[in-house]
Nucleic acid binder design. Sequence first.
DNA 1: AAATGTGAAGACGTTCACAGCG
DNA 2: CGCTGTGAACGTCTTCACATTT
Lengths: 287, 287
Amino acid sequence: MSQHRPVGTPGRVGAVPALPDLPEATVARLPEYLRALHNLAETGHDTVSSEELATAAGVNSAKLRKDLSQLGSYGTRGVGYDVALLIDQIEFVLGLTQCRAVALVGVGNLGHALAGYAGFAGRGFRIAALFDADPARLGEVINGLVVRHIDEFPQVAAEESIAIGVIATPATAAQGVADQLVAAGVTSILNFAPCVLVVPDGVDVRKVDLAIELQILSFHEHRKAALTGLPATAGSGLAPAGAGRATSNGSSPAGLTALPGGLAATGTTEAAPTGTLRSTNAEAVGS
Amino acid sequence: MSQHRPVGTPGRVGAVPALPDLPEATVARLPEYLRALHNLAETGHDTVSSEELATAAGVNSAKLRKDLSQLGSYGTRGVGYDVALLIDQIEFVLGLTQCRAVALVGVGNLGHALAGYAGFAGRGFRIAALFDADPARLGEVINGLVVRHIDEFPQVAAEESIAIGVIATPATAAQGVADQLVAAGVTSILNFAPCVLVVPDGVDVRKVDLAIELQILSFHEHRKAALTGLPATAGSGLAPAGAGRATSNGSSPAGLTALPGGLAATGTTEAAPTGTLRSTNAEAVGS
DNA sequence: AAATGTGAAGACGTTCACAGCG
DNA sequence: CGCTGTGAACGTCTTCACATTT
């Protein structure tokens, strides 16, 4: 709480400003604010109020203000935030002032799509190299990049200054790949394989597991079905204007449902949690 | 809290077990436990201790025990948990006893990969239909499914009992698609488009944004670079066996970094915990 | 008057440590 | 004795409400 830096006179001297250590929850939302800000900038807005920006980013305004205040941000009371300035601030904090080179390992179904994903480019990242272990895939060209053997990684990583790796291999190969990446100096990994990665301290791992996301939704479906009793279709209202309420979620008593027998269902593996958003419900229509 | 159901005698009679309303954080971890349990089951384990399962799932044992106790789970003191039983329990709670039909909208780069993703099948989900708005893509067959026009959604949704939709369209189209899905009775949406969706109450939305994940990693890269002072590559130790420590994360003094334009921020840096998983460091090698 | 920045309160989540059971 | 289950302590995140500033 009391732990602020001596902001006495703001960034005065030459090399003063370091990175404030932001709460993780805040860090996870900054990219969202950034995206919203870029949208606003393109729409010709010069300033935004916390209310407007919060709505655009899908959070409430108090949270947004607190988040921005963490970076010692510069809003003007009575006016709002300067869009361009905020963009610079956030991009700086996120380390996006330089385009970062990332390596993608595993060019299967998903990896292929990631390699071709246009969304990375405009957001500060460049896929600098593709790797796989399968001899059959080596040499293949995707989006202008040749697929190389994973053993070439150390060399390429050094050449391209790669510090971030994306793993899109099968689960069985993921840990081995992670070890190779870490050994070659990678310090951040985005893991799409449905498994837990063990890495040394100082290496950050984030995980994206598609099946897990669906399973979480499944839980809520299950819950909603139990509450309403009727799993029917029901064409509810559209989103536009005053959205209608659907399930109340509070302290209502849970519904009952029959238990499975001695079944042994399907599935096999999955993955981890996400620090992402949850359901939103405001009144304004999106775009 | 304290809100459990009378679990007096376990899942005995016919319709006893209701859904406790679990903390979201717990729900988000259950799929991870489930995956670990399936792995254990395949390896011939009949029981697991909280310690073992926790390690396999990448969490600490106290958290795991608390999570499992929420579902009134059945561990045996002095022994551990029955693997098969726990699997059933968790699958039941997550609503995975039935295979759920999901619709995928947007068969572009990413959507294409999702349509072909094998990981869903074994995990309780079936992609039941594909949609797009682009006439050029209609009729295309992916993985045995024909791409249909989004306007056919209501009809197909009714036929296939679809309650979960996956949006993999460009951001500009996403809100419109979401409205269509909701109007047709969809109550859960997994959104891959980089935008905020506005939906009525009672509809759950989860978002997966690949660029955001990378941006979060970028932040940590930026921070680590500021701490070490040297953004060089540096091949650290391998992960296998006794993992080596990389960055010490404690109270090391913060490094300074030059600011862009006329910004000014200050402060000390420090390591922060994550809501989700973070770097792990145990000694055992993964698989 | 309008909107930011922030203490303080509250909700939520995690970790500790041990009682209690097998 | 080993391991689960859980009360209590602790820490983090969110929300409220208002003093402060332009």
